[in-house]
Design a protein around this nucleic acid. Sequence first.
DNA 1: GATAATTTGTTCGTATGTATC
DNA 2: CGATACATACGAACAAATTAT
Lengths: 243, 243
Amino acid sequence: MRKANIKKDERLLDPMDNKSVVDRIIARITNAIINGELLPGQKIPTESELCESMHVGRNSVREAIKVLVAMGVLIIKRAEGTFVAEGFSDRMLDPMVYGLILEGGNTKYLIEFRRMLEVGVLNLAIQNATEEDIEKLKQSFDRFCNTVRNNSSIEEILDADIEFHRTLEKSVHNPLVEKICNVVERLSRETRARATEQFITKEELDRICELHERIINVLINRDEAAVLGVIDDHYQYWKDEIK
Amino acid sequence: MRKANIKKDERLLDPMDNKSVVDRIIARITNAIINGELLPGQKIPTESELCESMHVGRNSVREAIKVLVAMGVLIIKRAEGTFVAEGFSDRMLDPMVYGLILEGGNTKYLIEFRRMLEVGVLNLAIQNATEEDIEKLKQSFDRFCNTVRNNSSIEEILDADIEFHRTLEKSVHNPLVEKICNVVERLSRETRARATEQFITKEELDRICELHERIINVLINRDEAAVLGVIDDHYQYWKDEIK
DNA sequence: GATAATTTGTTCGTATGTATC
DNA sequence: CGATACATACGAACAAATTAT
């Protein structure tokens, strides 16, 4: 009956007036988490208890919990209980993955975003990386070069490349940034595999090793001014893949 | 019986061997979307049909659909059917929101990420913005200055600021970047509100107008070298809010 | 080690609300 | 208005997994 007609886009947590029973349960649980009633790692009431306390059916409770589990907010341990997750979860970025797929496989936007992320990561690494981080990065670089010069398959080279970038991202010391980079890398892997097939000549492989070395040098010298140029050169290869 | 024992971390879509009935249904639907069997905007089979074709209970189908709806992958039109979403949905980033909350309200990571995004946005805008975009941004800047100098409330100033940044982000012409910035802005709004209360003196307000103007100038002059400095200055204010 | 209790997983049946024709 | 199709919601029952006794 009541038309509500709230402002409009003030969603994003706190549905509150969503008539759906399931949504109300979701809101109730998430609010409890936000308010600190439910702390990370803590056990939430059993399904039956939630049914009773909220006067709703068990199936509705289950649907609500399932949603939160899929989002990575709750973790179910069967026959033991349901618990609030602690910190980030991989699956929190899954919906973004679906979004990219539904966006029509437009890899252009993804590649552009990835480039943006890499620039940001290098900038942040310049600020936050420790000497130990840099040491690890050097080791990662050596492994990458060995892989490249060892006549490895594209898959292996790509893995080594990703490992290098992961190490770099770790040196930022920001789990949020790390998780997002993670997903973007996995998503753009196929595109990169196709792009990588093109510069399989020895000279190009040498050159890409050199580019990685330049990244390390920029980091060591904390040379912010050089960041954009390095990443741009690094991207020049598969830039043409953008259709 | 069969233990499968897949490689390892090859999750991220394609669970496939998850014993859970609900997860299998989710996998089936998402795979159909990825393979192109189900196209964006298309209607998926009814709950009953899915029950029958997969030999599972109706509740399991409902739980699976609920999950995908919560992720923004499916859209239910009551009494009409359930449809595959087209493109991004705001709720695809909700899980990230929860992730930040569970990460212990550590706003440091969020602010750092936001700063990274702004640098990236400005860089991309320099590459992609049209003259028309810049014109719109100037208008947005004027509105912002008027709001600031009109003795407005913090809320109003913040809204005007966000509007300015939204305009800037639009000029990047990348929906993925736009969506992510969107969410990050909404998330960091509270933190910024607290920070903004501190520099309420007239001189500071003038200065923040000037900073916005500098952003525009950097864009007009396509001055990539100045990007980092501008954003850093822009952040100097609420940098101390990082605890 | 075996049994019982607890808790989640799955299914079925049924009734209700809501939109379309 | 009625008929139909579909989603929403509840309740009951049994299966499976884990823990505690």
